[in-house]
Design a protein around this nucleic acid. Structure first.
Length: 504
RNA sequence: UCCUUGAUAGCUCAGCUGGUUAGAGCGAGUGACUGUUAAUCACUAGGUCCCUGGUUCGAGCCCAGGUCAGGGAGCCA
């Protein structure tokens, strides 16, 4: 019996097994918010209706104690699920004492240290359930489209884009690297099965401390024989829209719990604009407007808004502090104001962070040098102007990977494509059409100073039935982060591995 | 690797210009209260002020070096 199914049992006696999410006492009454993984339900132990022993047990339950509760399902409009349980019998599996995560705001370092327990909180529960729906819908989409799921190895002997950010391990005495992409193997498998996708862990030893980096993350890499870059973009669009639609359909409750405004998810079901690198650069530098909005001007307006918000926040903090200072205020009201002040101060910190960042973003957008890759801030600048993900393709070949095909009409450009998520989330997909010519690949490998012998197997693919093909890589955690509108990728995976974080 | 912000009670934070015995709320413990939703109210316990060195009659506060963490850049999905 699970809490999510209670509505079908009104008036009947049921038995629930779960954990105490919250408990409140009154004389003769104990309120227990029971959490069982499927949902939360309030259970009421009334001293006049259960045994003396059971009532005493109920009063001793600390947060996250494990219990089995038997009781009657009663309709109650005040409850979230619309039902509560009137306890008739209580069986305690374990009394928990001093649960470290309090019913209050905590700092991120503390919560990450307690990640194994933090997972139990409602917000984390909702996010990771959405992650599950995303994973399931990814498999559904590709299976329906006739793709075969194939696994690339995790240990690799060669790097596809240099070795500086690879984790090195010992493989029977030889150096081996943890995979930073299954792409080259994906190409080999596509030549055998036509359309394949890999779904596995990926490792990058980047000493990055930003909101969009993990050292270990999950990547989906489809690879399709006989696809060009435009077919690739068509596939990316229908794929992402399928996943978004599934999340909207199946996760209403979870999206509500995390307070996700779904407007942009809905507008993302319309076609994704496809911009060339040249067009994207013009927009970033403010030379070209999008629907009458200029990137630089809108950033400057944003900065002005942030500065105005800082002024009003400071004023409100001072105001509330003055109010508390006046004697005679009730304790509850003082608490309320102090909590409010704490929240405002946190807001203020974030606003000040933005106040420092935005001017550097404006500068970097204005001074963007044609021919460079887009930086994190450039992605933020351009995606703020759209209410849909955008696709940027045809990149200067120097900044992209060696295996990408050149545009036959203009060989300065490589046929790579990046998908940038709206709301400032940036790159979630990177892909493109692959080079099919063996000699051109050899030139590129030499140019990138990569060890040729490690790529001989890959070059075989161009000797034996080389065909046009394309593919892409989607960072699962970045997609989860965007769809859930999280501030940081670390909440999009149960146990994040990142620079400085190996436990728990 | 660079820029930037920070580290004070179990947690979240105050601590003014360097000055006697270090403060609040939450959490914990005890008690009160029969409908609470982070319940409320009263009382109690709880401190290596991140580390090392320096300046000073005196350092939580100033200086130097380090450690750890937050945010950003580079790099990337």
């Amino acid at each position: 019996m699970y809490i999510k199914d209670l509505s079908g049992f009104e008036g009947q006696e049921v038995t629930l097994k779960g954990w105490v999410a919250n408990r409140r006492d009154s004389k003769g009454l104990v309120f227990i918010n029971l959490r069982d993984g499927s949902g939360v339900c309030q259970c009421i132990a009334d001293a006049t209706k259960i045994s003396e022993n059971d009532f005493e047990c109920a009063g001793k339950l600390g947060l996250e104690s494990a219990v089995e509760i038997t009781g009657t399902v009663v309709k109650d409009e005040r409850q979230i699920g619309g039902f509560e349980v009137h306890v008739s019998k209580l069986n305690v599996y374990q009394y928990a004492e001093e649960y470290p995560i309090a019913k209050k705001e905590h700092g991120i370092e503390f919560l990450m240290d307690k990640r194994h327990l933090w997972l139990r909180s409602q917000r984390q529960w909702a996010i990771l359930r959405i992650r599950n729906t995303i994973i399931y819908s990814i498999h559904q989409f590709f299976q329906k489209e006739g793709f075969v799921q194939m696994d690339a190895p995790v240990f690799t002997g060669n790097a596809c884009e240099g070795t500086t950010n690879l984790f090195e391990t010992d493989f029977y005495g030889d150096p081996a690297y943890l995979s930073q992409s299954g792409q080259l193997y994906g190409e080999a498998m596509a030549m055998a099965f036509g359309k394949i996708y890999t779904f596995g862990p990926t490792f990058r030893a980047e000493k990055s401390k930003t909101r969009r980096h993990l050292s270990e993350f999950w990547m989906i890499e489809p690879e399709m024989a006989f696809f060009d870059i435009h077919q690739n973009m068509d596939l990316i669009e229908s794929f992402l829209q399928y996943v978004i639609k599934e999340v909207l359909d199946k996760c209403q409750n979870e999206l509500q719990l995390i307070d996700r405004n779904t407007d942009i998810l809905k507008t993302s079901l319309k076609p994704f604009p496809r911009l060339t690198y040249d067009e994207a650069v013009a927009i970033i530098k403010g030379e070209k407007d999008v629907n009458g909005v200029n990137s630089i001007k809108s950033l400057e307006e944003e900065l002005a808004k942030v500065e105005a918000a800082i002024t009003t926040t400071i004023a409100e903090i001072a105001d509330r502090e003055a109010k508390i200072a006046v004697p005679g205020m009730k304790k509850g009201e003082i608490n309320f104001n102090q909590n409010k002040i704490a929240t405002l101060k946190n807001d203020l910190k974030e606003l000040e962070e933005q106040q420092r960042n935005i001017p550097t973003w404006i500068a970097s957008a204005k001074n963007f040098e044609y021919g460079n890759d887009l930086g994190g801030s450039d992605e933020t600048v351009i995606t703020r102007l759209f209410d849909v993900p955008i696709m940027v393709y045809d990149w200067p070949h120097e900044v992209k990977a060696f295996y990408l095909k050149r545009n036959p009409d203009n060989p300065r450009f490589a046929r790579g494509v990046d998908v940038l998520a709206p709301e400032g989330y940036g790159e979630i997909v990177g892909g493109g059409e692959r080079e099919t010519d063996e000699m051109k690949l050899r030139e590129k490998i030499t140019e990138h100073e990569l060890p040729m012998e490690a790529f001989e197997w890959y070059l075989d693919l161009r000797k034996y039935g080389s065909v046009p093909h394309a593919g892409f890589g989607l960072g699962l955690e970045r997609l989860v982060t965007w769809l859930c509108q999280l501030k940081h990728v670390r909440e999009s995976i149960p146990f994040p591995r990142m620079y400085g974080r190996l436990l728990p």
